[in-house]
């Protein structure tokens, strides 16, 4: 029972040894900055080097909205990190992953997107609350638990959906089968037995990849920006 306690020599990083555009651990990501990145506010935990942070759309950076954001959306939620150094990003100890797009597109829940390279452009999805990244480059997203990838056909709890790539937008699926039949009738009339909480899913079909987090607990929603109020445009929901 006695003897030295086993203490592993901890890994100490510095500006040279921090990973280059890779995870430090499942919850922290190290960006090798040489130029610009877009960050959601509040996600920088530490940095080495000469890095300036600017609000987007402010003064000289006005043109960035046109170049990378393509819409008058949520600019106040984003900052530009500009300079040279190593930048550590994290989000409330949630799992953090980087994704590489090669002339592709991926739609992600607005609250899950942490940062992206300016070579990607960010657009509002037709689906309210989601953002679509288009082009070639790297972005970083957080999820509550590891991200799990599934191929359609699959039905997903709305709160567990992180995003999807390449496949068509999902449709709503309602499951009220248990309301049929005699017992179901009694349930429907009396409310006895309650609801399963699984009456509604997002239904994905076609070719692509669906990203699911391991819990139905949402990350804090971010404003995905207003859409023009006009006929034929789905509302913000």
């Amino acid at each position: 029972m006695s003897g030295e306690s086993p203490v592993h020599e901890p890994v100490v990083f510095d500006a040279r040894t921090l990973p280059v555009n890779d995870n430090v651990n499942p919850y922290a990501f190290s960006v090798d900055l040489d130029g610009r990145w877009f960050l959601q506010k509040g996600k920088m935990i530490a940095y080495y080097g000469q890095i300036d942070f600017h609000g987007i759309g402010h003064g000289p950076l006005d043109h960035l909205i046109a170049a990378s954001f393509h819409s008058p959306l949520h600019a106040a939620d984003w900052v530009v990190a500009e300079g040279k150094g190593r930048l550590l990003l994290a989000d409330r100890a949630f799992d953090v992953n980087s994704f590489d797009l090669d002339d592709g597109n991926l739609t992600v829940r607005s609250g899950n997107l942490l940062a992206f390279e300016p070579s990607l452009s960010l657009k509002q999805s037709i689906v309210p609350g989601f953002l679509t990244l288009i082009g070639t480059g790297k972005f970083i997203a957080a999820s509550n638990g590891e991200v799990h990838f599934m191929e359609p056909p699959v039905r997903v709890d709305p709160q567990a959906l992180v995003g999807w790539a390449d496949c068509p937008s999902p449709c709503h699926h309602y499951d009220h089968a248990y309301l049929q039949g005699v017992l179901g009738g009694i349930r429907a009339m009396t409310g006895l037995g309650g609801a399963s909480g699984e009456e509604h899913q997002f239904d994905f079909v076609g070719q692509g990849t669906v990203l699911i987090q391991s819990t139905e607990m949402l990350l804090a929603e971010r404003n995905a920006g207003a859409v023009p109020d006009q006929a034929g445009v789905p509302g913000p929901g």
Binding site: P10, V11, F13, D14, L18, A46, Y48, L88
Partner: peptide
């Protein structure tokens, strides 16, 4: 979440 240890040395300040 697991702590990240970052070294500070002369000429390498940390924010």
């Amino acid at each position: 979440g697991p702590a990240v240890l970052l070294r500070v040395s002369s000429g390498m300040p940390l924010q």
